[in-house]
Design a protein around this nucleic acid. Structure first.
Lengths: 212, 212
DNA sequence: TATACCTTTGGCCAAACGGTTAAACTACAA
DNA sequence: TTGTAGTTTAACCGTTTGGCCAAAGGTATA
């Protein structure tokens, strides 16, 4: 990865580290590899970020920060539920198409180290002033309003939310399985498959919760 | 992990290695840790399994073998589609409740090393004489038959299959997120949440594909 | 030019790692 | 009791790892 002219060494390191950590995880990444790919000395990594752990946390937090604002905007938007679902699925798939490794990365590191996760989460939310619980409370309210009005079937908000997230995220983390077993290991077929899901998934969800 | 009396050292090592590899992954696992948890000398690991890689592959294959027979039986069963979906979701959730770390483990290792994985896959299927493509062809046929009969909405089989798998597997790989953000970090709430999904998910799927 | 500060480098280190080897232990048959 | 094959151990090896340090390079200011 080559450094662009108007980029500081510090941020260049972060970009390269992002790339390597995402593909190989914390344990699988070598500081030497980051240094080599950034075209610098290994000592320089420690000069800017002191330890591997600290560099990793910077990368990890950044991976989150890219997502949350967009997701949040979609969730708290003041539009009808069905439209919101369509917009959310569309947006989420588009982001993930551009950052396909992030979900598997986040999931693995969260499972590996769920102790530290709580702290990392807190600092992320504090940094960005994102009140997650409030966000979901609003969404919960909107969903249950539709349930009471008889516009959608009775379903617990958390279950619906997890369903939506599952349908959006899983196809990316399970890419090797889907591509390998269902799509003849053909990259193009996989990309087409994902593109089609933008509509398939929102139709699926809306069909599932619509009153017949 | 203590060794039971009627258990050979060799299989005891495998059990302990399974436990450690599943939680920490290939890169995150130390041979010394497996030895310590098994209460044996590190050299003994190499005596029985020669290298870390070989031990890992044994564990990885075993993780798959536990799953496939049950899954296969459900998929090729000669029962109506809706019943099949209900049975599949129920079975899958029950297996995953007992082996919650397997999905994240498999996904991570597949993403980390999809080159070797192809070979491992082949040998697994050869060992167990499982013709996966045939399995999915049969399921595809059953689904499209229902589509043509007008019993379910028009949906591509692969999309439906991925939807089902997403809804079953994702809640386990994303446990830290779901539990942490949606369920107040309460283990019991998470377990209840998963238990409820056995019915929620199959209702959701069937509702989604039913003709209104 | 001289000074001071920030950046970058190469050399180095102790610890941890996967793996090897030779010797010791064990059980059992001759 | 001795021989033998399978099992287990302690000591050790070469390499890799994350991290440290002192010195060199660069640049702006006085």
């Amino acid at each position: 990865m080559s450094k662009s002219k108007n980029e500081t060494t510090e941020s260049h390191i972060l970009n390269v580290a992002h790339e390597v950590f995402l593909k190989k995880g914390l344990d699988g990444t070598r500081m030497q590899e980051i240094a080599d790919k950034a075209g610098i000395n290994k000592s320089l990594l420690h000069y800017y970020y002191r330890t591997k752990q600290k560099l990793f946390e910077k990368v990890f937090k950044l991976a989150f920060k890219h997502f949350f604002p967009v997701v949040k905007a979609n969730i708290i938007a003041d539009i009808p539920l069905f439209e919101k679902i369509e917009a959310f699925v569309e947006t989420y798939y588009s982001i993930l198409q551009k950052n396909p490794y992030i979900p598997a990365f986040v999931i693995h590191e969260l499972n590996r180290n769920s102790a530290n996760v709580a702290e990392i989460f807190k600092s992320i939310f504090q940094d960005n002033n994102m009140e997650v619980e409030l966000m979901f409370d609003e969404l919960d309210e909107q969903i249950q309003k539709e349930v009471k009005k008889g516009n959608i079937i009775a379903i617990e908000s958390r279950q619906l939310i997890v369903n939506i997230l599952s349908l959006c995220i899983f196809p990316f983390v399970a890419k090797p399985i889907i591509k390998g077993i269902l799509l003849e290991n053909d990259e193009l077929k996989y990309k087409t498959f994902i593109e089609e899901r933008k509509k398939v998934v929102s139709q699926f969800i809306i069909s599932a919760i619509s009153i017949r």
